[in-house]
Design a protein around this nucleic acid. Structure first.
Lengths: 163, 163
DNA sequence: CACCGCATGTAACGTGTTACATGATTCA
DNA sequence: TGAATCATGTAACACGTTACATGCGGTG
């Protein structure tokens, strides 16, 4: 449920056709989230089916625009409080929790391995932070760095709890 | 790709039947990630189809166990380095990035709204942190608190960059 | 008895992912 | 001319989610 809302958000800026939305999405997210064009067209079909966008074809260029319904759904999304829903399943959490349910030893091994991986990632991202090519990319790397730091902190907490 | 690996991990501890896996999964994750039983059976079918588990029925109790292939896949998962893949799409990031691609004003509004939501969540979670019912639940709330703190920090960074 | 927890499944649907097919335009 | 990019789409498949149907066993 991310592509859907992403396309709606881009259409709020201006009506666009499929290919434009693909490049727009990738530009807005600093290139970290490649988006298959096919999925764009598919998602647009579903959005049209649900009455959130309307299309208008001329010269083989099919242009999409938000409907009133689409505007409403998008508005709700901007303000949505994620606190209502259960947190999304996360791979790192899942790994550590399941390892912990197995045995302390296993948990400690997994924590050690994941810490190495996260630290390596963090280093890579701190480096790329110094050469931001676009504001979007800068924000993305910020997020990834901060996230990685949080993951490290959490791994430390888990280790303490287990020991 | 989380349920799949989760079931494999539980089966590594001991062979089990479907319903056991549901309860096991929920126990291991401290109850934050409810898992529909139907999905368990469905996923087990797919795992069997792919040769990662094998089932053995007696008295209407169908017991599943890891195959060698399953052990191998699971082993790879424990050590997997997420650094290879593009980061998973995240709703908060997506919202802020797309709002920023629209206009500064919109971005600042969204950041403010999301900060409120994250702070509310953080408070709730800090409270529940004081009454952990199980080690698993304690680790989960740790993770959610640390994550929320990271999100707040990121929102601050975004605001700086935009201003 | 009626209800609840255990246990197994099926069906339908939504979304995401990849691969494939097609054609127009642009540019070296 | 040949390759890359723009542009639109289809098909097949994987995974997640919910709802529904069925039967057994224990307990108030």
């Amino acid at each position: 449920m991310a592509v859907r809302e992403g396309l709606l958000a881009l259409l709020e800026e201006r009506p666009s056709h499929g290919y434009q939305l693909k490049t727009g999405f990738e530009a807005a997210t600093g290139g970290v989230w490649p988006l298959n064009v096919g999925q764009v067209y598919q998602t647009l079909e579903r959005l049209e089916r649900d009455g959130l966008v309307a299309s208008d074809e001329r010269d083989g260029q099919r242009s999409y625009a938000l409907t009133d319904g689409g505007v409403a759904v998008l508005g709700a999304w901007w303000e949505a409080d994620p606190g209502d829903e259960p947190p999304r399943r996360d791979e790192l959490m899942l790994k550590v929790l399941l390892a912990a349910s197995h045995s302390r030893e296993h948990a400690l091994e997994v924590i050690a391995a994941q810490r190495d991986a996260v630290m390596a990632q963090l280093q890579r991202r701190r480096r790329s932070r110094k050469a931001p090519e676009s504001p979007a990319e800068a924000m993305v790397t910020d997020a990834l760095v901060v996230r990685a730091e949080a993951d490290l902190r959490w791994l430390d907490l888990c280790e303490e709890r287990i020991s």
